[in-house]
Design a protein around this nucleic acid. Structure first.
Length: 420
DNA sequence: TCTGGGGTCCTAGGACCC
DNA sequence: TCTGGGGTCCTAGGACCC
């Protein structure tokens, strides 16, 4: 059996931990740039705030219900996530950390233990260690555990087990086909058109039909819903095959120099992420977009890829090629909203194929990066940087309601008054 | 004024090989 | 009447996830 443990309204729950007066009140967390709603407490859901809602369009609703609005604070969420995960690791030797707020646990070694009680215990322990509420779904495949978890969220215990065939059929028959993990809105639409409305319809549909219309992906899903596991736990995250850093800007930008400074900062982030996983990139892609929602403005999407002579994770070298790419796509006169950098065709750092006519001392460059990373680990991100990254930060994000780094910054620790 | 950021997997079709 | 049979590699695009 597998358990799927999912943190309830994770970002909103993190915000509440250190601002407990928000308990029982509606809370929403906004995306980068305070652009749209990406997390909601149950109270916020209840008053009808939708995922993706735009704050300026629901101003009245927010004011009327005195909704607590927060900018996203990923440092806090990332730290709370690792605390939750560390607790889950106590419950199974095999845990897949699937996303920032979800983990799969392998329960195959659990013999003679009541699974429901185990789930209740797990939930209580996570709450005791971290204060984060979680839901637990337990079943014989990952896809069924997902379905059980969805059901668990509707129960007061917060735990739901699919122990037998009867329960499986009952759960699947009351589940919309679009709620199956792996069926997105596009395939859900098609499936309904073909007369498949519930997860049980999907599980019982002719195999050849599912295979024909939804390829092997659909076929596997069907097997999983019928209790045949097709996906094992991924205990170690495989190295990423590509890495992207991009942001929308608080304000649209027209000036090339501003755009370059932002883009090279994103490139530097990519280079750092590459070094962290000990990879080097063969290809670098840079893109620059205008605001696609502003139909009144001229639109432009520029993108350019460059193949490096030798795979690299050197910040200065990647910035050099990123700048060439950006210069070649930049068109004056447009108002740019977003740029980004993607590094691709990654290879292990130790495995880099050198070029016949390569110039420069790569060993020396590597040592420079090592020192830079060391300095920055000790004194803070980007303390040491390439000049082109600048200090202007004209491209900075808007985040007007950001909470403190309660768990990761000494200067922002919570103060507790003990006089009373 | 105002719409996130970061990934993976699969398939079809073209180019090319013998 | 009417033009083989297998392959591989690469890319673009679609679909999905959080």
């Amino acid at each position: 059996m597998y358990a799927l443990v999912d943190c309830n309204n994770f970002y909103a729950s993190c915000e509440r931990l250190f601002q407990p007066w928000m308990n029982g009140k509606p809370v929403v967390v906004l995306s980068n740039n305070d652009g749209c709603v990406i997390a909601r407490s149950n109270e916020a859901k209840a008053i009808g705030i939708e995922m993706g809602a735009l704050p300026f369009m629901i101003e009245d609703l927010l004011a009327k219900h005195q909704v607590e609005v927060r900018s996203s604070n990923y440092v806090l969420y990332g730290d709370m996530s690792s605390r939750v995960m560390a607790t889950l690791d106590l419950f199974s030797p095999n845990v897949e950390h699937y996303s920032i707020d979800e983990s799969f646990l392998d329960l195959h070694d659990l013999i003679g233990v009541d699974l429901f009680d185990h789930g209740v215990n797990l939930r209580a322990t996570v709450h005791q260690h971290t204060g984060i509420p979680v839901s637990v779904g337990i079943a014989s495949t990952k896809t069924l555990a997902k379905a059980a978890n969805k059901r668990a969220k509707k129960t007061s215990a917060g735990v739901f087990v699919i122990p037998d065939e009867q329960t499986r059929i009952e759960v699947l028959s009351s589940m919309d086909v679009g709620d199956i993990w792996g069926v997105g809105h596009r395939n859900a639409y098609k499936l309904r058109y073909w007369g498949i409305h519930t997860a049980l319809d999907f599980a019982n549909a002719p195999r050849s039909m599912i295979r024909g219309k939804l390829t092997v992906v659909g076929s596997r899903l069907q097997d999983e819903l019928n209790g045949t596991p097709c996906a094992d736990l991924e205990l170690e995250a495989p190295p990423k095959q590509e890495i992207c850093t991009s942001r929308s800007f608080g304000k649209m930008m027209t000036d090339y120099d501003d755009l370059e400074e932002a883009t090279l900062n994103f490139t530097a982030r990519c280079a750092l992420k590459l070094r962290k996983q000990r990879s080097a990139a063969n290809v670098i892609t840079v893109f620059a977009y205008t605001n696609r929602f502003r139909e009144d403005l001229a639109q432009y999407n520029g993108t350019r890829s460059i193949t490096l002579p030798v795979a690299s994770n050197d910040t200065a070298e990647l910035c050099h090629y990123a700048r060439i790419a950006l210069k070649s796509i930049f068109r004056p006169g447009y108002r740019y909203k977003k740029t980004g950098c993607i590094v691709q065709n990654l290879v292990p750092e130790r495995n880099v194929q050198s070029a016949l006519f390569d110039v420069g001392d790569r060993d020396k460059k590597r040592k420079v990066m090592e020192v830079m990373d060391l300095v920055n680990r000790k004194y803070g991100r980007d303390r040491m940087r390439v000049g082109a990254q600048g200090y202007g930060k004209r491209w900075h994000l808007r985040c007007e309601q950001r909470s403190r780094a309660y768990t990761t910054r000494l200067s922002e620790l919570l103060e507790v008054n003990v006089d009373q």
